[in-house]
């Protein structure tokens, strides 16, 4: 079993006395496309900055590819690339020039991949960056971060401010990358329909902590909306695993988590009620779990 690409153990980081992340722990397996999901201010960006070695944690440890990224040698930095939210590229340069500047720093720089991807997404090599659209600039930044063939690619809100087509193209880029070579991608976002399209794993970040981390399939199979119809007296009935319950005159609906189907079917039988279950989109799941987390 391969070593996790990322291991963060109980990390905390304060800014001016306010904890951005606290008791933050996370493991990310090699080859996964991991989506960090959370509200604005939950700590996603701080977590990514810890991962990229831009920040040092006040407490706890961060290990990327087995190394502490904060004082890592250049060889390490060649294996991990990072695109910040709203990454700014030099506006008076063009991508050909930027590539010339960056390539010597990375032994695995792939000129052909770089050129092919730019061409595929219609981003010109010799057009000044200031003349590219926002979507194209974002694509360019991501393609620049991919050209070194990193083992780990970190993206902070790569899809924010992008239109639906640009977002779809960006996702295709990420998927193409993972088909091409063994790369782990960690990205933060709050566009959850995008996550459902490409992520293999998700982590929910709430108030500086990771409150859930698992494969996407597991989360979606685990949290569901169940209904019991034809319940005679709903007053004192406890639904196992319920995060939220709504009781009608003779029906009960509940969002449940971590509970076996058999238990719920047994309850339905006991109540003499009919039972149905449906799965929820990730966005709804996130909202339900967030509501449950609020103190």
């Amino acid at each position: 079993m391969k070593e996790p690409v990322l291991q963060i153990e109980k990390a905390s980081k304060k800014f001016g006395g306010v904890a951005a992340v606290e008791d933050f722990s996370l493991n990310v397996a090699s080859g996964s496309i991991y989506a960090l999901i959370g509200r604005n201010g939950a700590g996603k960006t701080t977590a990514l900055h810890l991962m990229s070695g831009l920040l040092k944690p006040d407490e706890g440890t961060v290990r990327v590819l087995g190394t502490n990224p904060f004082n890592a040698p250049p060889e390490h930095r060649q294996r991990v690339t990072f695109v910040a939210e709203n990454q700014i590229l030099p506006v008076n340069a063009n991508l050909g020039q930027l590539a010339k500047f960056c390539a010597p720093l990375y032994p695995r720089w792939d000129h052909i991949w770089f050129g092919t991807m730019l061409a595929r997404f219609g981003v010109g090599l010799d057009i000044d960056i200031k003349h590219l659209s926002q979507g194209q600039q974002r694509q360019a930044a991501i393609i620049l971060a991919m050209a070194p063939k990193p083992e780990l690619l970190l993206l902070d809100e790569p899809a924010s401010t992008l239109d639906p087509i640009a977002r779809r193209e960006m996702m295709e880029l990420v998927l193409a990358l993972t088909r091409e070579w063994e790369c782990t991608v960690i990205f933060s976002t709050h566009i959850l329909s995008d996550v459902e399209r490409i992520a293999s794993h998700v982590g929910f970040v709430t108030n500086g902590k990771v409150t859930l981390s698992s494969s996407l399939d597991e989360v979606k199979e685990n949290v569901r909306l169940v209904r019991f119809n034809g319940v005679k007296n709903s007053d004192n009935i406890q639904i196992p695993g319920a995060i939220r319950v709504e009781k009608g005159t003779n029906s009960i609906a509940a969002v449940v988590r971590d509970v076996k189907e058999e238990e719920l079917l047994a309850l339905a039988a006991k109540l003499g009620a009919s039972y149905s279950a449906e799965y929820l989109p990730l966005e709804d799941i996130f909202i339900e779990i967030q509501k449950g987390c609020r103190v």
Binding site: G31, A176, D217
Partner: peptide, 17 residues
């Protein structure tokens, strides 16, 4: 797996599964 992931537009883990 790779071809399927590409044509279906899903990640490789999904195609493999």
């Amino acid at each position: 797996v790779r071809e399927l992931a590409r044509t279906a537009g899903v990640n490789m883990l999904t195609a493999a599964k």
